[in-house]
């Protein structure tokens, strides 16, 4: 039993029972509030605590009304907000509402990602490959798509042409060569074709359009054997007053022509690729 309880018993026997008042609100200075609330009969209690009698007398003399602000700001800790949440609220978009907190969504997202990350990756890979292929094709065949066509898919004659191009790229024969066109017409066609191609490239360059890479036809210099140019030897070449024979030349003299031509073909093919 503490001293307060003894005092309280004594007081209650003298006067009447004290009502239990609720605990005063949490403040910085409980002494000041106690002073205002209690009657003089209670002085004994407060003096039981650490306030000295002198201090109390002073305060009574002043009789000033103390205004105590109950400010809960200092008590409550500032809520912490994630950077994500801050950005979501302060961006120019309306903040997302009615959704779980960003941290929760992030967790669930990452969890689900872990579960099927493999599948997702594979799917992405496949999609990327598909898109790559489509882009390559488009670049190769874009010249077939006229200015008027709105879609990226070739139709009609352009589609057939694109198909021919693809077949050709895979090693098929050109359809044009099947026909038996007279020489002068064929030459005219070829000439016109190269002219058109040159024009297209020039215009694209001027307009700053990136075209597909030009496949340059390698000029195969046919060596006229025997008496082609006056002073030229039929085989090898003159250098510093001597006839220089390359390995190929030697092979052409010693070995069969088939072997040479076969090797030549192979090399040609390799370079083109």
């Amino acid at each position: 039993m503490d001293a307060m309880e003894i005092f309280r018993r004594y007081f209650e026997s003298q006067f009447e029972a004290i009502e239990e008042s609720p605990a005063p609100p949490i403040t910085k200075s409980p002494e000041i509030i106690d002073d205002g609330d209690r009657e003089d009969g209670f002085d004994g209690f407060s003096s039981g605590s650490d306030i000295s009698a002198d201090e109390e007398e002073e305060e009574e003399e002043e009789q000033a009304v103390e205004i105590v602000h109950h400010d809960s700001t200092k008590k409550a800790p500032r809520p912490l907000m994630s950077k994500q949440e801050v950005r979501a609220f302060m961006s120019s978009k309306p903040p997302p509402s009615g959704e779980p907190t960003p941290s929760a969504t992030k967790n669930s997202k990452s969890r689900s990602k872990d579960a099927d990350s493999g599948d997702e990756k594979d799917e992405d890979e496949a999609l990327n490959l598909k898109n790559d292929l489509a882009l390559q094709r488009l670049l190769r065949e874009s010249h077939l798509l006229g200015a008027g066509s709105s879609t990226l898919e070739a139709t009609g004659a352009a589609r057939l042409k694109a198909l021919n191009l693809r077949i050709e790229a895979l090693g098929g024969k050109r359809e044009v060569e099947k026909q038996n066109t007279p020489m002068h017409i064929r030459k005219g066609i070829e000439e016109k074709k190269s002219m058109r191609e040159k024009k297209r490239r020039r215009e694209a360059k001027e307009a700053g359009i990136v075209l597909e890479k030009e496949v340059k036809e390698r000029k195969i210099r046919k060596r006229v054997k025997g008496m082609g140019v006056v002073g030229e030897p039929g085989v090898g070449r003159w250098k510093n007053g001597g006839l220089v024979l390359s390995k190929r030349d030697v092979a052409s003299i010693t070995g069969g022509g088939e072997k040479r031509s076969g090797g030549g073909k192979g090399r040609k093919g390799g370079k083109r690729r």
């Binding site: 609220f89 120019s92 978009k93 309306p94 903040p95 509402s97 009615g98």
Partner: peptide
């Protein structure tokens, strides 16, 4: 931005809305 525009989200109008 923070109280009026989110109302339209209830009508499923929410994409591409911004107030700069």
């Amino acid at each position: 931005r923070t109280a009026f525009l989110p109302l339209f989200g209830k009508f499923e109008i929410m994409r591409g809305i911004e107030l700069r």
